[in-house]
Design a protein around this nucleic acid. Sequence first.
DNA 1: CTAGTTGCAAAGAGTTTGCATGGCG
DNA 2: CGCCATGCAAACTCTTTGCAACTAG
Lengths: 141, 141
Amino acid sequence: MSKYVTRQRKVLLDCLNRHPDETFSAQEIAGMLGEESVSLSSVYRNLAELEAEGKVRRTLKGSVRESYYQFLDGARCKNRLHLTCTQCGKTAHMDAEEARELTRSVAKRDGFLLDKTETILYGVCEVCQHAGPPEKSEETP
Amino acid sequence: MSKYVTRQRKVLLDCLNRHPDETFSAQEIAGMLGEESVSLSSVYRNLAELEAEGKVRRTLKGSVRESYYQFLDGARCKNRLHLTCTQCGKTAHMDAEEARELTRSVAKRDGFLLDKTETILYGVCEVCQHAGPPEKSEETP
DNA sequence: CTAGTTGCAAAGAGTTTGCATGGCG
DNA sequence: CGCCATGCAAACTCTTTGCAACTAG
């Protein structure tokens, strides 16, 4: 799709490459790049292109009507399932073997053909578990 | 929350009860009830209430910016994971034992604490697999 | 009668699009 | 120089909200 290598495109890709496991809204991304650097519409247009190329995944977070975009490292994501932390937003990759087992189990027991690219498992990652639950007002006395 | 039993509320609940495993957008629901029967805003307001009570789950489908609502049968969903078919939109329930195994596996191998209420596995259900892939234009010759 | 609900229309928020300008090749 | 990409602002869509009228209990 992309025929020209523009400054904006470079800045965006650079940013995504630096944050392979995180998800951001279009507005957050525009903010990270500096509002003056890339216009919001270009961010949207480029993300849409990247999504079509399979280099970026677009998800809908929580109950909000806002899209979140995540850079996909082809090699790391191949045949894996994603584990996204509902607290810090980072994504871990289930290893291929484990993913295969799950796929097999679901196929056998439920007759369900799991789609690895669409499915995301939500929960709390190791780091956040140890950090304890998010404090309600301040730290627990 | 709901203190009064209004006609609109009855109609909506009735409809949801009739379609426990399917997901619909607010507009689709309003349509099913008959536009003249319940106003769109009331549909939204009641769904929001039901969601807060945990009787309805709100998800964001595909890459669209539209919310989809699904009636949750408390008993059936307890401790289960949901398997939603990307083709027909219906949801099946992974049995409790299988869900427990998966939770355990993910905890041990990835240190990830799975959230059963948030996670939905996407894929193709048994029926749609046998029905073959969705025809592109018409039936395969 | 009183307080929760409804409907309508207007306000909001995120995303998309039309069009002129700008920049890559 | 030609065509793609950018920016801005207007257009869109889904969802929320304010407010007066309505109605369940």
